[in-house]
Lab assay of single mutants.
Amino acid sequence: ARCQGVVCAMKEAFGFIERGDVVKEIFFHYSEFKGDLETLQPGDDVEFTIKDRNGKEVATDVRLLPQGTVI
């Protein structure tokens, strides 16, 4: 199932997405972002798939959504 959220933090090689369905942040590695990383910034709406890696939830297949998609 695809989830939606808003990019809330960006570091050197990874970032965090504030999920739209639950009050929780989820980790994503930049290699999982399908698009131009140069244009990705905090506040952007994205959709993603949640996978379990070593007992921790991570966002994979992260894709940009049109602004205003995530309420």
Rank of each mutant, 00 (worst) to 15 (best):
T60L: 05
A59D: 03
G20P: 14
I26A: 04
M10Y: 01
V58Q: 09
E47H: 02
E32F: 00
T49N: 07
P42C: 12
E47T: 11
C3M: 15
K51W: 05
L65R: 09
L37K: 08
D45R: 13
E47Y: 05
L40R: 02
L65E: 03
T60A: 11
E12P: 14
E18V: 03
I26Y: 11
A1S: 14
V58A: 05
S31N: 12
E32S: 05
I71H: 14
R19F: 11
N54M: 12
D61G: 09
G20E: 09
F27D: 04
E32G: 03
V23G: 13
E57W: 06
I50A: 05
D45V: 10
E12M: 04
C8A: 15
F33G: 00
V46L: 00
I17H: 01
R63C: 13
Q4V: 06
F48I: 00
L40H: 00
I71Y: 11
T39K: 15
E32Y: 02
I17Q: 00
D36T: 11
F14R: 03
F33T: 02
I50T: 06
G43V: 01
A59Q: 01
I26F: 06
V58P: 03
E18R: 13
V23M: 09
L40V: 06
T69D: 14
D45N: 15
E32L: 01
V46Q: 04
I50R: 05
Q4D: 01
C3V: 15
F27P: 13
R63I: 10
T39I: 09
I71E: 10
T69Y: 03
Q4E: 07
F33A: 01
G5A: 01
G35Y: 00
D45P: 14
D45H: 14
D44C: 14
G43W: 02
T49S: 09
V22N: 11
V6G: 02
F33V: 05
V70T: 13
N54V: 05
I17E: 01
K34V: 13
E12L: 08
A1R: 10
D52W: 12
D44Q: 13
F27C: 08
L64R: 10
V70N: 11
F14H: 14
E18C: 08
F28P: 02
E47P: 00
L65S: 06
F33E: 00
E25G: 10
K51Y: 08
E18F: 06
E57V: 12
D21H: 09
L64H: 10
R63E: 14
G68A: 09
G20W: 06
L40C: 03
I50D: 03
K56I: 08
V6Q: 14
L64D: 15
C3F: 15
A13G: 12
F16S: 06
V22A: 14
V7N: 01
D52R: 14
D45K: 13
E47M: 08
D44P: 00
E32A: 03
A13D: 08
A13R: 13
E57L: 11
V22D: 10
V46P: 00
F14D: 09
V22G: 13
G20Y: 06
I50W: 03
Q41G: 06
E47D: 12
T49I: 11
D36L: 05
V23K: 14
H29K: 05
D52K: 09
F27Q: 13
C3I: 15
E25C: 08
E12C: 09
D36K: 15
K24D: 05
C8N: 09
K56S: 13
V70F: 08
E25S: 13
R63N: 11
N54A: 12
G5E: 00
P42K: 08
R19P: 10
T49W: 08
L64T: 12
K34P: 02
Q41D: 04
G68S: 09
E47A: 10
R19Y: 12
L40Y: 02
G68R: 07
Q4H: 10
V70W: 07
M10E: 00
F28R: 03
H29W: 05
I26T: 06
C8E: 02
V58H: 10
C3K: 15
V22H: 13
I26M: 05
K11L: 08
I17L: 03
T49D: 09
F16W: 03
E25L: 10
F28C: 00
E38R: 13
G55E: 06
I71M: 15
G15H: 03
G20H: 08
T39N: 14
A9R: 06
D36Q: 12
D36F: 04
D21F: 04
N54C: 15
K56N: 15
E12W: 03
M10V: 04
P42S: 09
E38A: 13
D45Y: 13
P42F: 05
K34R: 12
G55A: 03
G35I: 00
A13I: 08
V6E: 04
N54W: 04
V22K: 10
D21S: 11
T39Y: 08
Y30I: 06
